[in-house]
Amino acid sequence: MNFLGAPGVALLVFLENLFPPIPSEIILPLAGFTAGSAAGQFTWVAALIWATAGSVLGAYALYGLGAWLGHDRTVKLLSMLPLVDRDDIDKTIGWFNKHGYWTVFFGRMVPIFRSLISIPAGVERMSWWKFGLLTLCGSAIWNTIFVYGGFALGSNWEVLEQAAGWFQYIVIAVVASVILWYIVHKIRKARREHQAER
Score class of each variant (00 low, 15 high):
residue 91 K to N: 13
residue 92 T to R: 13
residue 92 T to N: 14
residue 94 G to V: 12
residue 96 F to I: 11
residue 96 F to T: 04
residue 97 N to C: 10
residue 97 N to H: 14
residue 97 N to Q: 15
residue 98 K to V: 01
residue 98 K to E: 11
residue 99 H to Q: 09
residue 100 G to A: 13
residue 100 G to P: 08
residue 101 Y to V: 13
residue 102 W to S: 15
residue 102 W to F: 12
residue 103 T to E: 05
residue 104 V to P: 07
residue 104 V to R: 10
residue 105 F to H: 08
residue 106 F to H: 06
residue 108 R to Y: 06
residue 108 R to W: 00
residue 109 M to P: 04
residue 110 V to T: 13
residue 111 P to T: 06
residue 112 I to Q: 05
residue 114 R to G: 04
residue 114 R to Q: 12
residue 114 R to F: 01
residue 115 S to Y: 01
residue 116 L to T: 09
residue 117 I to Q: 05
residue 117 I to W: 04
residue 118 S to T: 11
residue 118 S to A: 10
residue 118 S to K: 06
residue 119 I to E: 07
residue 120 P to C: 08
residue 121 A to F: 02
residue 123 V to W: 03
residue 124 E to N: 15
residue 124 E to C: 14
residue 124 E to R: 10
residue 125 R to W: 00
residue 125 R to F: 01
residue 125 R to C: 07
residue 125 R to T: 06
residue 126 M to R: 07
residue 129 W to N: 10
residue 130 K to N: 13
residue 130 K to Q: 15
residue 133 L to G: 11
residue 133 L to M: 14
residue 133 L to A: 15
residue 133 L to F: 12
residue 134 L to I: 11
residue 135 T to M: 07
residue 136 L to E: 04
residue 136 L to C: 07
residue 137 C to S: 15
residue 137 C to D: 05
residue 138 G to Y: 03
residue 138 G to R: 04
residue 139 S to M: 06
residue 139 S to I: 06
residue 140 A to V: 11
residue 141 I to Y: 04
residue 142 W to S: 07
residue 144 T to V: 04
residue 146 F to I: 09
residue 146 F to A: 14
residue 147 V to W: 01
residue 148 Y to V: 11
residue 148 Y to D: 05
residue 148 Y to S: 12
residue 152 A to N: 06
residue 153 L to S: 00
residue 153 L to A: 00
residue 154 G to Y: 00
residue 154 G to F: 00
residue 154 G to A: 01
residue 154 G to W: 00
residue 154 G to S: 02
residue 155 S to M: 02
residue 156 N to I: 00
residue 156 N to S: 15
residue 157 W to M: 02
residue 157 W to Q: 02
residue 157 W to I: 02
residue 158 E to G: 05
residue 158 E to P: 02
residue 159 V to W: 08
residue 160 L to D: 02
residue 161 E to S: 15
residue 162 Q to W: 05
residue 163 A to E: 01
residue 164 A to W: 03
residue 165 G to Y: 01
residue 166 W to S: 09
residue 166 W to E: 09
residue 168 Q to H: 02
residue 168 Q to Y: 02
residue 168 Q to I: 11
residue 169 Y to G: 14
residue 170 I to M: 12
